[in-house]
């Protein structure tokens, strides 16, 4: 079932969804299960967002009558993409949708963080707004917790609302063992199940005695591990930047002590 999203299976080549998923530029999308689309409850409110809603829905579920297909095809395709995108935004925050996106994340289908010190951390798509036609999709890095524009312009033109503002954060809320470490190599692929990872984390923790966190999975002080770039001129730090970085680190340390206190 998991491989359906690659769209390579010839059995699916004539379905609209697999055609959509396999066309160039749509690599970020995962397959929404037909069952989910057919449950009208999941589509509540979308009929006001999409014109020709009924035909668009028929098109993406391959139930469109061949007769009208030719006349409307052009405009209907746009509406079908919009509808699929909006359903997709809802789907990927369900348990099954999250699991599907997780597979794509592990394959780094969304690209890798351009920040050098993130060591090619795989990214996750995120929108800046849940309203369509406002902002294009961005990519969230779980390591530096910042958002980046996609490298390629064909991804840069995808609507951010098709992924929504919540998705990456909900993913890490549901799979806290997948929260990337702030330093060290990327090993997202091997972090399959929570059991092993929990054990690894507990083993890693004592390596950092300065943090002093006994609770195995606390993330209060992870920021201390983050690498950062320090601008230097002939080996000497640049005054104004160094001063800003000291201030930022003071803010960091303050947050850490606040978090450590509240974890008790």
């Amino acid at each position: 079932m998991e491989d359906i999203s690659t769209g390579s299976d010839s059995d699916y080549s004539n379905s609209w969804i697999s055609w959509f998923l396999s066309s160039k530029g749509n690599e970020y999308f995962c397959e929404v299960e037909e069952e989910y689309i057919l449950d009208r409850f999941n589509l509540t409110g979308l009929n006001t967002e999409v014109s020709n809603y009924a035909q668009a829905l028929d098109l993406i579920t391959d139930n469109l009558d061949d007769g009208i297909q030719d006349e409307l095809r052009g405009s209907l395709d746009v509406q079908a993409r919009l509808l699929y995108g909006l359903i997709h935004a809802r789907w990927i925050v369900t348990a099954r949708g999250l699991a599907k996106m997780l597979e794509k994340y592990k394959r780094a289908d969304f690209g890798r963080c351009p920040r050098v010190l993130c060591s090619s951390q795989p990214l996750l798509p995120v929108g800046l707004t849940d309203v369509p036609y406002e902002k294009s999709v961005k990519l969230y890095c779980g390591r530096c917790e910042d958002i980046y524009s996609p490298k390629s312009s064909r991804h840069g033109s995808i609507d951010g609302a098709y992924f929504g503002t919540s998705f990456p954060h909900l993913l890490f809320l549901v799979y806290p063992n997948l929260i990337p470490p702030k330093s060290g190599p990327v090993d997202v692929g091997s972090r399959g199940n929570g059991e092993t990872d929990g054990r690894r984390r507990r083993r890693e923790e004592p390596d950092v005695p300065t943090e002093g966190i006994g609770e195995g999975t606390s993330t209060a002080a992870v920021a201390l591990k983050a690498d950062r770039y320090r601008p230097r001129i002939f080996g000497f730090q640049v005054h104004e930047i160094a001063k800003l970085q000291r201030w930022q680190e003071a803010v960091r340390d303050r947050q850490i002590s606040k978090l450590e206190e509240s974890y008790v």
């Binding site: 503002t165 954060h169 680190e249």
Partner: peptide, 22 residues
Amino acid sequence: PKIYGFKVSDLAKNGPRMQWMR
């Protein structure tokens, strides 16, 4: 970071840890 429009609290395990850097 926001979930359904609500900021993710830094008290959450997956809460923001790196905002200081920016």
